[in-house]
Each structure stands twice: as structure tokens, then as C-alpha cells.
Simulated assay, not measured.
Amino acid sequence: MDPSVSAFQLLLTGDPALLGIVRLSLIVSMSAVGLATLVGVPIGACIALTHFPGRTAVIVVFNALMGLPPVVAGLAVFLLLSRSGPLGPLGLLFTPTAMVFAQVVLVTPIIAALTRQTIEDLWGEYRDELTAMNVGAVRRVGTLIWDGRFSLITIVLAGFGRAAAEVGAIIIVGGNIDGFTRTMTTAIALETSKGDIPLAIGLGVVLMAIVVLVNALAWVIGRTAQRYAG
């Protein structure tokens, strides 16, 4: 039977192995993006609105980390979580938690750097009004985050796209263990090498559907932001 036909049969029948891999992938990526958002948005906003020695260097570092190679991030997390590493006693290596940790390392700089640019642009636009109203630092951050919420949601979606398509870091720290740490990207690589093309195609179709959906949401949010601004 043609591999494409077999792949769509797996999708239509709801193959348990395929669904399990998709479920784990979504849980890991969504958890990582949620944590990265909680960390990255405040950091980006604080960098945008404060001036301190070395601020330019911090901005350069965050911008550089946006292109951090996944295998380097995976290696760093592996060393942290390995038995001889500082977090080794926690026993997190080769678990979904380690995979979340690795994706947080990859996604947080993206969210922080793009948030910094967004909030800095908004601060330049509303500086006079907020200063005249004597708005405090905390309220200032909250106000600008709320005003830039559509742009920030788009940034978060970009972070999710990065996390969902990542393979290098999570295969290092997760081990690609069947039924436990195998995600869509790692499974596609493995099943292709094993010759199980239908499952690889099925997972590829699901992954592409998720990527298209995320980009569609980003486009809709961007259009909504334009109408709102207008």
C-alpha cells in the first residue's frame, strides 16, 4: 500500500501511537512556551523601560540567543541535569520535564528580545502621556504590556512555532524514549530512518497543520491589531 494512503489511514483511525506522540509534543511545547512567556515578557519589558550599566550588552546577548543552536542548548541542559551536574540529584534527565526545560532555554530569549523591542517602541509613543500622568513603574509596565497585547500574543505564537519544530535539544535531554519522551519531530527523524514512512508522514502532516494554524492565528491577530490601532 502507498505510504501516503497508510499515513492518512493512521490519521483517520486515530492511531494510538500517533496520538500519544502528538499529545506529548503539545504538552511539552505549550508548557515550555507558557513558562518562557512568564519569564521572557517581564524581562523584556524591564529591559525596555530601565537604563542600567551594561544594558546594551544585555540586549546584544538576548538578540544573539534568539539564534541559539538547539544542540548547544540541549548540551547545556544535559550538563545541568546529568548525574554529575548541579541539578543531577533531581533525576530529571530523559524525562518530559527536561524537554520542557530545554525548550524554555530556547524560547525565552526570543520572547524577551521581541518583547523588549515592542515595549520600547510603545514607550517612545506614550512616554509623554504616561510621564504627565505620573504613572509608576509597575503600572507603566502593565499599561504598555496591555496596549501591546496583540503584538505580544504574536510573539508568543512565534515562540510556540520554534518550540514545536525543535528536535536537536529535546532529543539530547529526552532520549527519544518510545511512549515517554518521543515527540513529533524526534519520531519523524527516527521512523524515517527505520523505514516506517506512513507514521513519519502522518506525524509530518499533523506538525505542518499545527504550524499553519499557528501562522494563521498570528496573521489574524496582526490584522486585529491593525484594526484596533486604526
Score class of each variant (00 low, 15 high):
residue 197 I to N: 08
residue 86 P to E: 12
residue 68 L to H: 04
residue 224 T to N: 06
residue 178 D to G: 00
residue 36 A to V: 09
residue 147 D to N: 11
residue 7 A to D: 07
residue 81 L to A: 11
residue 130 L to H: 09
residue 227 R to L: 13
residue 15 D to L: 05
residue 127 R to V: 13
residue 44 G to P: 00
residue 171 I to S: 10
residue 125 E to V: 15
residue 206 V to Y: 12
residue 67 G to F: 07
residue 206 V to D: 11
residue 100 V to A: 08
residue 225 A to M: 05
residue 81 L to K: 03
residue 72 V to A: 13
residue 111 I to P: 00
residue 140 R to Q: 15
residue 200 A to L: 14
residue 101 F to K: 10
residue 168 G to L: 04
residue 11 L to M: 04
residue 142 G to A: 14
residue 25 S to Q: 09
residue 142 G to I: 11
residue 192 T to S: 10
residue 126 Y to I: 09
residue 203 L to N: 08
residue 69 P to M: 09
residue 3 P to Y: 06
residue 210 I to N: 07
residue 50 T to Q: 08
residue 143 T to N: 07
residue 15 D to E: 13
residue 74 G to I: 03
residue 112 A to D: 05
residue 171 I to T: 15
residue 9 Q to K: 13
residue 76 A to M: 15
residue 29 S to Y: 07
residue 113 A to K: 09
residue 211 V to L: 14
residue 225 A to F: 02
residue 28 V to W: 01
residue 7 A to S: 05
residue 191 E to Y: 13
residue 74 G to K: 12
residue 115 T to H: 11
residue 103 Q to N: 04
residue 139 R to E: 10
residue 23 R to C: 00
residue 128 D to Q: 15
residue 113 A to D: 08
residue 98 A to P: 00
residue 194 K to I: 10
residue 31 S to M: 05
residue 24 L to E: 05
residue 210 I to Y: 07
residue 192 T to I: 02
residue 32 A to K: 09
residue 114 L to H: 02
residue 214 V to R: 04
residue 183 T to P: 01
